[in-house]
Design a protein around this nucleic acid. Structure first.
Lengths: 109, 109
DNA sequence: CAAACACTTAACCATTTGGTTAAGTATAGG
DNA sequence: CCTATACTTAACCAAATGGTTAAGTGTTTG
């Protein structure tokens, strides 16, 4: 039996597995935005966008800060590198395996 | 209003947002495995593992083939590169933005 | 050919997800 | 101070998720 040792990766990949949230992540590269500014391009209510932003926050992708009556959202640029690292580790693991297999087949001749 | 143009990314990131499925992806780097071999390390039934493998298949991460009474699963090594490309595009977008901001602040002085 | 094996299908279940509406709270502006 | 703005909270909803059990189907194997 194996347990999950990487809940942060669950949240990170989970957060990215939704089109609105990926779009928000791209939007925020243009700079800080308020919740209503984020919601505006989508056919979505403000509470709806709040839930998406909360999920992005828990995934570590976004930071929010309230100034006056406005909540501003901005990117946490380090976050994506965790996902990237997992993918790189995994593909390099695959590649090594495939190279080992190729070597083996060559020595077979 | 913005629609989703990348359903494959939804499936890909969605599939990776679950610890059992990430573990399966790593397991399969060791080579082809049957459904029961995949299920064995986890506290999960065979139908449970079948659902995970089906999701990995729809995400394009895994190929399966039935030989005799056994269904073998193997990796589709190209699949992860789509996720990697999205992350790279997004972070390079961020980086450009941050560099532009740095330049702007420098010229301010 | 009978039984064991490896999966498959179907039905069900609790929880989470992605969304809503409606009624708040708190700040800004006139 | 009153009102509009911008968010927040709560309650609700349908559908999807991650799991199960139970009863199949199709392939070895003795």
């Amino acid at each position: 039996m194996v347990k999950c040792l990487e809940p942060q990766l669950d949240r990170l990949f989970g957060a990215l597995g939704e089109p609105v949230r990926r779009a928000v992540v791209r939007d925020l590269a243009l700079g800080e935005k308020s919740l209503s500014e984020l919601a505006e391009p989508f056919d979505i209510t403000l509470p709806g966008m709040m839930k998406h932003v909360a999920i992005l926050e828990e995934a570590g992708l976004v930071m929010t800060e309230k100034r006056g009556r406005t909540r501003f959202c901005r990117l946490e640029p380090e976050a994506l590198s965790h996902a990237q690292r997992w993918i790189e580790e995994t593909t390099s693991f695959w590649t090594k395996r495939l190279e080992a297999l190729a070597t083996y087949l060559e020595e077979e001749n």
